[in-house]
Design a binder for these strands. Structure first.
Lengths: 216, 216
DNA sequence: AAGGTATGAGTGAGCGGTCACTCATACAAC
DNA sequence: GTTGTATGAGTGACCGCTCACTCATACCTT
């Protein structure tokens, strides 16, 4: 995660101004998508001029990428804390589920942004950014699973890579199901109108599901 | 699925012309997204005039919705054949996985289109359409699971609705992982560059995963 | 300290390009 | 002639981006 898409001047402006612009932009991109988000509106809402934005970023896309980058870093940070800790696998997984629930609410627009980019075709730069994140979590999950297999917690019949893939699929969908409009509706259709308030039930049921899958 | 977003005249034009326009439009929307797909380009590629398109549809959105509607119907049809058949649950599930693999390749742009709409915020019409689809599969899955619980195949400790939600999450992600660019890359990162050619392995591993989850 | 000067961040009206949509015209069928 | 359909150049709204200008601040010079 070394890439930078902003001009140097963006680093030098007051913290407050920088943070404000980023938050506004993330909000707009998350709610309207890349194309429908309007630079002029972002400028207005952030209380700065369009000119300034173009002093900080070469293009609209660069502003967008900086937002994504910011989001990726934030998510990664949160996840890593749990993954790196010295706790049993099942405890870690449960913590991740709870983190997803919490994070999807407090940083909802970041996850919407993330969902956004999974749909966007042919924007290689955007992928690259996100691919970096996926690579990291893929490696961490896979090694966790391998470790668990050695300890006999997870059956050796599994390909550790596919197993972590399935796991992460469940987590990713859960994230979207709390944060993104479409997936929220779908979540409610499946599990009832009030499912978004039944966090404990979801944790319990998903843990049961995952735990059972360990040993066919 | 009764809604119609096209004018009556669209029903009256030659089959060939109608099919051609729909396919072209689906292709364009799937590859460029709703906003970046260009009506003028669609007209050109389909070999008809812009004017005609606006004789058949009131707005760009209506053309889009007709495409989505078409996709949803196609997917639904394929899925239902399996779900309604009189076979053991595990056989059904395995068939679904194989269908996903096949369908994601032959109708790739339909699934890209589906992915597309999950990302689009606040477009009530789009939801409605897809919600209808989700509702049907949610009901079918849930009743399958309940049935299996009665037969003692799936543990009674599960909420049937959440269990089918998790199942469908796995299927949905699998679909995207075969069809959509971003998810394909992610799939490869997790499971290796050649995973898209290892269909049998995926079936076997996913079935193991699902089957194990039945009984905690 | 006062006056002179240089710097560069900040501004927003406006340019230019794109694209959804219209409409005057042409054509065909009867 | 009338009705139904097809056409694509044209229109205008919209929006990313530019650029000529402002002005606060910092740094001289005397």
């Amino acid at each position: 995660m070394k890439k930078r898409f902003h001009k140097e001047i963006f680093d030098r402006i007051p913290e407050e101004r920088r943070k404000n612009l980023l938050e506004t932009a993330i909000h707009e991109f998350a709610h309207h998508g890349f194309d429908n988000a309007n630079i002029n509106t972002i400028a207005e809402k952030a209380g700065i001029s369009v000119g300034s934005i173009y002093k900080y970023f070469d293009t609209k896309k660069d502003l967008f990428l900086t937002c994504v980058h910011h989001g990726v870093e934030t998510l990664e940070q949160v996840l890593n804390e749990v993954l790196v800790s010295r706790e049993p696998l099942l405890v870690k997984l449960e913590k991740i589920i709870r983190l997803i629930q919490e994070h999807s609410r407090s940083q909802r627009h970041l996850i919407m942004l993330y969902n956004e980019i999974t749909a966007e075709s042919n924007s290689e730069l955007t992928w690259e950014l996100a691919a970096e994140m996926e690579t990291i979590s893929a490696r961490v999950y896979s090694s966790l699973v391998e470790q668990a297999q050695k300890e006999g917690i997870i059956s050796g019949e599994y390909s550790p890579r596919l197993f972590s893939f399935f796991l992460d699929n469940l987590f990713m969908m859960l994230q979207f199901s709390y944060a993104c409009d479409y997936y929220r509706e779908r979540f409610k259709i499946y599990a009832g109108e009030d499912i978004l308030e039944k966090d404990e039930l979801v944790v319990e049921q998903l843990m049961k599901f995952i735990k059972a899958s360990f040993n066919p």
